[in-house]
Amino acid sequence: MIQVMSSNTETSKGYNFAYLDEQTKRMIRRALLKALSIPGYQVPFGAREMPLPCGWGTGGIQVTASVIGPADRLKVIDQGADDTTNAISIRRFFKKVAQIVTTEKVDEATVIQTRHRVPETALIEGQILVYQVPQPEPLRGIAPRQIESRKLHAYAEYGAMQVTLYEDVARFGYIARIYEYPVMVNGRHLMSPSPIPKFDNPKMQNNPAIQLFGSGTEKRIYAVPPYTSVRSLDFDDHPFEVQKWKQSCAFCGSGTSYLDEVITDDRGGRMFVCSDTDYCAKRRGAQPGTSEVAGSPAGATAGSSS
């Protein structure tokens, strides 16, 4: 009866499919339905304590566990990549507790759990994108108290949020928010898009896929249903803009994707590569998930990412 936590065993004996019991999943699904009915509204839910730390995707994991079925194909990314440690760890978790088929290809996935990125590949109807959210409250910096911030949402009092953008323009001449850039959903609720770069904000607008957001620590779920308006806050005379790079991806040559800056030596050498590994591999016609990257010298430094 005490066979549980050992990290070496690949067994999931004693656990329900996808870890959560069915009653808990039903509770979460009810919260998800409510969230989809009121786009951008944060629904409190009875988040369970998960075997991963708070802030490491427990909200996203609970959402994924509640919507996933045995026929689904799951993709997990962190910073756009399938091979970052936390993405691997979450994928392993679902392999263990749900014996689920996983994939690194957006086109094959039915459910994609993500931290900090929206895939570059356009999503299609029927896909579900699950965002991990550390802090669901876009007004936290303005009204740290939940009692007040919930009122501001209820009465749609968002003037103070706009003031923060005004302050940026007054100070720098432009809006200096670059990730976790607040959006107005369906013209009604102010929403945090999670800490994705603002580069990804436009992808949320009118997206055919279902976008679900889970915060385990703060016990909140919210959602953007397919084809919903998601507008990034801005001014008429200082319109919203996304990041641009002078460089293109050193591997696939993409000039339109979000780039990671990589330091190549200790003399200031650096290069820019796609943060979305699946997208980059697809453009190069390579198989994602192999340890070798086409176009780069072999000799992977396994282990250095731990």
């Binding site: 392993r92 990589v262 340890s291 250095s304 990412s305």
Partner: peptide, 18 residues
């Protein structure tokens, strides 16, 4: 360019557990 994309995270995690 002497850059290699870091891979092998899965093995690293297993090693870390050991």
């Amino acid at each position: 360019m002497a850059y290699v994309a870091v891979k092998g995270g899965e093995q690293a995690i297993l090693n870390s557990h050991k």
